[in-house]
């Protein structure tokens, strides 16, 4: 476990150390997904890759958006745009807890001084039709990560089971760096020629998006986009597997899943605009779940999802 235990100097150093640590443990370091999502779990490298029998090991940073959490950059801990660090390994290795603890050490948490606890916290995503068992990990009473063994995604049983780790990067980095307000956290090395704080990078965008999310986003346009994404997702999946142009078997799980992600994010925006009533809420969540399930059904029909040409012959 012994690795660099010096304290990092900046937000980005925390990220870089996590990247180096998980790269050294054999994970493919992926890049963020290029769409708006509510959490790192939505990245297809997690949702879709958790399905099927193929082994997988990936780690990545995922910018995440939760419009309802916007506080115009004033709240020390809440942001409508923030970063998650996500690790997904399938099958979950027997020493995943130890690997995880090693990552905390790598970002400068001294195991001899801190009290790390695994406290029951089962994870469920009604929009993804997914659930798993695990913990929230406490460091001296503060939640620093979510640790989940995926049991179901998109209505499919996970077998083998993936182990998923999610770090809330801002909160974790604030803790490691000893900063009380997120906007005051050094983004790069404070000794740099041009030192930048988190606030220098994000305070203005937090204000702009808070205003747009809460008061300006055109709800009629959003409602229409939701319907369109939903229809497009279904249309993509309705296409036959055989591509008439190339004559190849091409199941379009990912393009369909993009529409599912889109619908999910639009739902979050509508929620922030306060135009979704309590009863409608459940209905919208159910609609997104239907898309997620259809995409999962499609993905397991692809080679990445464990489908093999021999299957069709059998």
């Amino acid at each position: 476990m012994a690795e660099a235990t010096t304290r990092p100097k900046s937000f980005q150093e925390v990220i870089l150390r996590l990247q180096a640590y998980w790269a050294a443990r054999g994970c493919a370091i992926l890049q963020p997904y290029d769409m708006e999502v509510g959490a790192g779990t939505f990245h297809p490298a997690t949702t879709l890759r958790a399905l099927g029998s193929n082994p997988w090991a990936a780690a990545y940073v995922q910018p995440s958006r939760r419009p309802t959490d916007g506080r115009y950059g004033e709240n020390p801990n809440r942001l409508q745009h923030y970063y998650q660090y996500q690790v997904l390994i399938k099958p979950s290795p027997p020493d995943l807890q130890e690997l995880y603890l090693g990552s905390l050490q790598a970002i400068g948490i001294d195991m001899d001084l801190h009290d790390i606890r695994f406290v029951e916290d089962d994870w469920e995503s009604p929009t993804l039709g997914a659930w798993g068992l695990g913990w929230e990990v406490w460091c001296d009473g503060m939640e620093v990560s979510q640790f989940t063994y995926f049991q179901q995604v998109g209505g499919h049983d996970c077998h083998p089971v993936s182990g998923e780790l999610t770090y809330g990067l801002e909160r974790l980095a604030m803790y490691v760096l000893g900063v009380d307000h997120v906007m005051e956290m050094p983004y790069n090395d404070p000794q740099s020629p041009i030192p930048l704080s988190y606030g220098d990078v994000f305070r203005q965008t937090e204000q702009e998006y808070s205003r747009w999310n809460f008061d300006v986003a055109d709800t009629e346009v959003l409602l229409r986009h939701f319907e369109e994404a939903e229809a497009e997702c279904a249309a993509i999946l309705a296409e036959p597997f055989a591509d008439p142009k190339t004559g190849k078997r091409i199941v379009m799980a990912h393009p369909a899943y993009d529409q599912c992600i889109k619908a999910s994010h639009i739902f979050n925006l509508l929620d922030a605009r306060g135009v979704i009533s309590v009863t409608e809420r459940q209905a919208y969540i159910g609609r997104v779940r239907t898309l997620a399930k259809a995409c999962a059904d499609a993905f397991v029909q692809t080679e990445a999802g464990g489908w093999q040409p021999a299957d069709s012959a059998a």
Partner: peptide
């Protein structure tokens, strides 16, 4: 009163400070 799961080199000073900080938030 908080209950830690271990003894530490600094007699719990870091653990207590961390817990206090979370409580303050």
């Amino acid at each position: 009163v908080t209950v830690a799961n271990r003894e530490t080199a600094d007699q719990g000073a870091t653990v207590l400070a961390g817990n206090q900080k979370v409580l303050t938030a």
